[in-house]
């Protein structure tokens, strides 16, 4: 018995350190963003408690018109994009999972081909340009409007709905569209919740397409602005369009401003994280390997 508890102690210790390795860099940034600017120098790179306490970094970041605009852009793109994703994915999944029609096999092979052949970012860019969609939210909303992997997850879920329920609706004279909206969708709430989170997280985190399709900074989503600060180290945009007094300017700590922007970008994910854990985890376990 003693040896068992020995190995157990080792396992618990390793896992505890693994969790610290994930948490400390995150908590350190949070502590930095909440420290008061004159004492932030005292904060060690491993410190997780703020030195002093101040919300000045958040006040400055959230009073920057460009950042506020970008948060609005991100929210808009995420909501509209996810609604479009769900509509297209579910209606396509219904037809492919629950009905038989001439040409169905052809469509399924077509979808597998879509999964295997990836277009080049160059020809995708040129397409968006030719369609006149550069510098529009539409370019971001339409990109990956249906993810084939998610489509297959939803199809698998729709297939599990008992045929008897659908059959009885059909006898009552319901057509396909009615069966889809009144029976299949309401019975699939957990799967739709999973997909909402999948797609929503994707849109919120998307930055690359916005980097190449959107050149007007007023239309940038938050991730692109954040990238401008933390990756490109562009400090002038961080304070652009704000009239800060020289004293305030002198007291600012750019690393802390960056960390507060990172925290703002993570907050929506943290708020949804309990739901994500509940649905994502299940979706991934059910979905088998690739999805």
């Amino acid at each position: 018995m003693r040896r068992m508890s020995w190995s157990r102690t080792i396992i618990y210790t390793i896992l505890f350190f693994v969790s610290l390795a994930v948490l400390i860099p995150l908590l350190n940034l949070l502590a930095m963003s909440l420290s008061s600017p004159d004492r932030v120098n005292e904060l060690s790179g491993l410190g997780i408690f703020p030195k002093g306490f101040s919300l000045i970094n958040y006040e400055i970041i959230l009073s920057n018109p460009m950042i506020l605009k970008s948060i609005g852009n991100s929210v808009f793109i995420t909501i509209v994009g996810t609604v479009l994703n769900l509509t297209l994915t579910s209606i396509t999944a219904y037809v492919l999972a629950r009905t038989n029609f001439v040409g169905k096999n052809f469509v399924l092979i077509f979808l597998i081909a879509i999964m295997v052949f990836e277009p080049s970012m160059i020809t995708e860019y040129l397409l968006v340009k030719d369609l006149g969609l550069l510098n529009t939210y539409a370019s971001l909303i339409f990109y990956k409007a249906i993810n084939v992997y998610y489509l297959f997850i939803l199809m698998r879920f729709f297939q599990e709905i008992p045929e008897s329920i659908i059959e009885s609706a059909r006898i009552d004279g319901a057509g396909h569209f009615r069966i889809f909206t009144r029976i299949v969708l309401p019975l699939s709430k957990p799967a739709l919740a999973t997909l909402t989170l999948f797609y929503g997280v994707y849109h919120w985190n998307e930055y690359f397409r916005a980097t190449i399709y959107i050149s007007d900074p007023g239309k940038w989503p938050l991730q692109v602005v954040l990238r401008q600060f933390v990756v490109t180290q562009d400090n002038t945009t961080m304070l652009a369009g704000m009239n800060l007094s020289p004293e305030v300017l002198a007291s600012l700590d750019f690393a802390s401003l960056q960390s507060s922007t990172i925290v703002i970008a993570i907050i929506p994910l943290l708020l949804l994280y309990p739901l994500i854990l509940k649905y994502f985890t299940k979706g991934t376990m059910d979905g088998g390997v690739k999805d």
Binding site: V22, L29, Y207, L226, V230, S259, I266
Partner: peptide, 20 residues
């Protein structure tokens, strides 16, 4: 805790790692 970083964008992770 260990699942959390999967949901962060690479922009955010780059920010965290550059600092750490």
């Amino acid at each position: 805790v260990s699942y959390l970083p999967h949901f962060l964008s690479w922009v955010v992770i780059a920010g965290i790692w550059i600092s750490f």
